[in-house]
Nucleic acid binder design. Structure first.
Lengths: 167, 167
DNA sequence: TATTGTTATACTCTATAACTATA
DNA sequence: TATAGTTATAGAGTATAACAATA
């Protein structure tokens, strides 16, 4: 088995030339590193929870999105930030598992709605509760006062209203 | 093209039976959701930065690890939390790009060390600086006092000393 | 003409299992 | 016998391009 790079866009040099050496200060670097650790743990917990239900991360995310209601394939692709062609496969596998079904959209016959089945909805709910693992472990170490402070800081940081989480 | 699920371990039912309905309080849920948003942005920024250099996320992580010095393949697998067989391919592609080279370990002739080339080291450094995108955008909205408070909260939350970040 | 979803194709990451070479 | 690394294989996610159905 060979591992060969097939195509290498000449973006590296361009990126290097465009670079504007930001070089954040020590405090900022430290916060970025800490957030990196948070990201790592959050992801690990999420994937572990999904694996408990024999779901991949992408499948779990789609199921979480469908908990809000039937959703056009296109919109799922937008939320996952991937190409629509990928969503076809992910939903196919969820359909094969009986967790999701495809419905027609009466208003626009081009669109197909992915919808969680009763079992899919149940799985999504249990999966969501499983995220309590993260809340228990690292978050649980913070007293309520600290959790409130953290909430306010994150709110201030993220500020602009964003849609409900898909990750 | 068919998308069929080949094997479905009967873990779902087991997981459902084992579930202990933690049902975190509203404040904790809100913090978890906010952290989810942070995770999403962090990842997007990381992948975008890697893509600027025509690298995948996994390749960028390996390159970041090699910036600390030559590393046995096995150790890379441990850090990436994946099987050693995967590292072979990832390093192969980096070698094909001229960013990494394999060296023999004199002490134990079974191990092979992956080491960043001069160009690889340069790329790793630029990539690291690119994470400033995250520091600039959402983190930049916090005043220094707030960043300091955030740092302290995250420290308290993560507490136990962890190794340098690979993500 | 533009949009939605699918198919076909290729690449990468992933895990499992079998293999070589060292220890 | 145990460990480090590789190879082979298969499933899953990803992007690109081409296509049919509908708007």
């Amino acid at each position: 088995m060979f591992h060969v790079v097939k195509y290498v866009p000449a973006l590296a040099m361009l990126a290097a030339m465009t670079r504007r050496t930001p070089r954040a200060d020590a405090l900022t670097c430290e916060v970025v590193e800490l957030l990196g650790e948070v990201v790592r743990r959050y992801h690990d917990d999420y994937d572990r929870a999904a694996a408990d239900y024999a779901l991949t991360g992408a499948q779990a995310r789609v199921l979480a999105l469908l908990a809000y209601g039937p959703t056009p394939m296109r919109r799922l692709a937008d939320r996952l930030k991937c190409e629509p062609s990928n969503v076809t496969g992910i939903v196919d596998r969820l359909v094969a598992r009986g967790l999701v079904e495809r419905r027609a959209d009466e208003a626009d016959r081009r669109v197909k709605l992915a919808a969680a089945t009763a079992e899919g909805l149940r799985t999504a709910t249990e999966l969501r509760d499983s995220l309590g693992d993260f809340a228990r472990e690292p978050l649980g170490r913070l007293a309520e006062t600290d959790r409130r402070a953290l909430r306010d800081l994150l709110h201030r940081m993220l500020d602009g209203g964003t849609e409900p989480a898909a990750l």
